[in-house]
């Protein structure tokens, strides 16, 4: 079950605010500071997802990806196996919206995905990877790593 149950109207212009903020923080404080804030967001805001992943349960992560990308009318494919989740986003809804309103996409746009995902997985048996296939097209992979 999702910790944050948003199901009403969407204000996609918030993607513009995120985009501006990525540039602002990286430009003024450096990329490491931006990564730190994004990781904190992944771990602390998504504490419920993080804590479930720590106990080996990826159900809320799967529900989160599916629900919020569906709400944003993203084009994606979600494949769930016991120890591996592959989430291929064919057209990033945030980048699509930025293009629609004529705003330049931050060079740190995909960092929001990789670092928030890393924050969710921090100190859990899961690891996140991000492969950028093309602009707006990425493959997010979550793997459950068995420590020897």
């Amino acid at each position: 079950m999702l910790r944050y149950q948003e199901n009403n109207e969407l204000h996609k212009d918030f993607h513009s605010s995120t985009n501006m903020t990525l540039d602002y923080i990286a430009g003024k404080y450096g990329v490491d500071a931006l990564k730190m804030i994004l990781r904190r967001t992944g771990r602390r805001v998504y504490k419920s997802i993080h804590d479930k992943l720590a106990s080996g349960d990826a159900s809320e992560l799967v529900e989160h990806l599916n629900w919020f990308f569906m709400r944003e009318q993203g084009k994606y494919q979600l494949t769930v196996e016991e120890d591996k989740i592959v989430f291929e986003v064919f057209e990033c809804p945030a980048q699509k919206h930025l293009r629609k309103i004529g705003q330049a996409i931050s060079p740190y746009s995909c960092l929001q995905t990789s670092e928030v995902n890393n924050g969710m997985c921090e100190d859990t048996p899961w690891q996140a990877e991000l492969e950028i296939v093309a602009p707006g097209h990425c493959i997010q992979t979550f793997r459950k790593v068995v420590k020897k």
């Binding site: 944050y4 948003e6 969407l10 204000h11 996609k12 212009d13 918030f14 993607h15 605010s17 995120t18 903020t21 923080i25 404080y29 500071a33 730190m36 804030i37 994004l38 904190r40 967001t41 602390r44 805001v45 919020f68 990308f69 709400r71 944003e72 993203g74 986003v89 990033c92 809804p93 945030a94 929001q112 995905t113 928030v116």
Partner: peptide
Amino acid sequence: MIPSDHFVRFYNEVFKFL
């Protein structure tokens, strides 16, 4: 992608940092 639904919670983390 941080969902637009969750932007304010990211914003809130930025505020704490600043």
